[in-house]
Design a protein around this nucleic acid. Sequence first.
DNA 1: TCCAGCCATGTTGCATTCAATATACTCGGT
DNA 2: ACCGAGTATATTGAATGCAACATGGCTGGA
Lengths: 249, 249
Amino acid sequence: MVGTMKPLIPSDATSTAKRAGAEPGREDLSLHDEILARLRDHIVEGSIPGGGRVPERQLCEMLGISRTPLREALKVLASEGLIELLPHRGARVRQLNEHDLGELFEVMGGLEGLAGRLACENITDAEIAEIERLHYEMYGFYLHRDMHGYFRVNQLIHQKIVEAARNAVLLGTYASFAGRIRRVRYSANFARKRERWGEAMREHEAILDALRRRAGSELSDILFEHLRNKRTAAVEYLRAGNLLPPGPD
Amino acid sequence: MVGTMKPLIPSDATSTAKRAGAEPGREDLSLHDEILARLRDHIVEGSIPGGGRVPERQLCEMLGISRTPLREALKVLASEGLIELLPHRGARVRQLNEHDLGELFEVMGGLEGLAGRLACENITDAEIAEIERLHYEMYGFYLHRDMHGYFRVNQLIHQKIVEAARNAVLLGTYASFAGRIRRVRYSANFARKRERWGEAMREHEAILDALRRRAGSELSDILFEHLRNKRTAAVEYLRAGNLLPPGPD
DNA sequence: TCCAGCCATGTTGCATTCAATATACTCGGT
DNA sequence: ACCGAGTATATTGAATGCAACATGGCTGGA
């Protein structure tokens, strides 16, 4: 279940004890924000199984806090679409069915397309060089059939493009959606057949080319299609039963 | 200040009184959701002045509830970007400076571009006909220089395109961003100079044309540029000092 | 044996209360 | 008279307590 979650503070800490040091780098945040980030991580990482009922009380003692800040965090996570809150019946980690997944990938495609368009207007030569470097690094992983390394660098490239768009709102929105499909995206990674992988690699060549030429509209189209193809691959993989697609677990 | 807000329930109601009838059509929702929707409306409508400090206590007695559900709602609104929560210093309605506004319009442009692209794949002839009808209705308002009617129908057209994309996630995201810039968008409406208005009208001709031909990629480009031009008009208007652009009110 | 209604239990929703921090005022010093 | 330290107050942050609702088991009847 959720037994893998480590408590936020030692169980012997009193309610008034300073929480400094509980999470280095986050000490200055409020308890609410701490909980929020922590829960989000757990959900995105998959530590909390989808669909499993996890009573508030249980989460409270796990995190070492009372229900008030936890509930506030849950409300926020629900508004983000990561969990769903059933009245008087608690919170469940949201299960993405095939349809939801398709919609999310489509929006991701739109956001990446936008990012590409804006990036062409704002990206520096140094940033392009960095993406080129990553591209060839990724190509190396492709040649060596290193799926894990490939996908890591792949995501990094997409991230760099979004960052090059110079739009904090876009960056935040992208991150939010990326979190929602992260689990699936990662597992769908392993679905890639040889031909799809090669196709993806060619698409990335086109992405880099359009970026070099700063052809915003074109890059936008390519990225959208690229994400659409990713979606297809992911959905096919999930449909094969490898992960929780439509029905209840 | 916020004196224009009407209380959710009569002040003599006890804490355990049924709230049925407080808001027809929303009776079945939880108090939290009621508050959330109500606060969101007030912020979007501008009933709560931007930047003004509004203590929780005051909001509580206005809405006739305790602080717990109110605070939950505030956290959600903060995560949506409508308000900002300063630690130990309360909530303020978020003030959009010129930069924020530009970023928001860019993302809106990306979302509308995506909507146009998807709409071309999914829209029915009947929906196109409906948009055509709205288009000519809007043209009538343009000819009569009826700014209010024009913008109302204008937004309706954009809304229809987003709906035609057949993507609930996109629809929700679009609605969220639309809410964030709604006040500005509306007031920026009045900024339109004659030439810009005519230009916008021509852009809408192109939008309709691309939609008829179901040219997704082209429509995506047009809509993005259309929003970008809207942004320029809005920013110019705000920069002229008509509304709260960068500094404190 | 099976099903319907009732009750017990656990969980959630909200209100209230306590603790911690920021702001504003006052007082003393320069 | 002006400025800074110290304190008082008000507001937010978090915890606890109580009421309402949902789920599961039990009993009585067909």
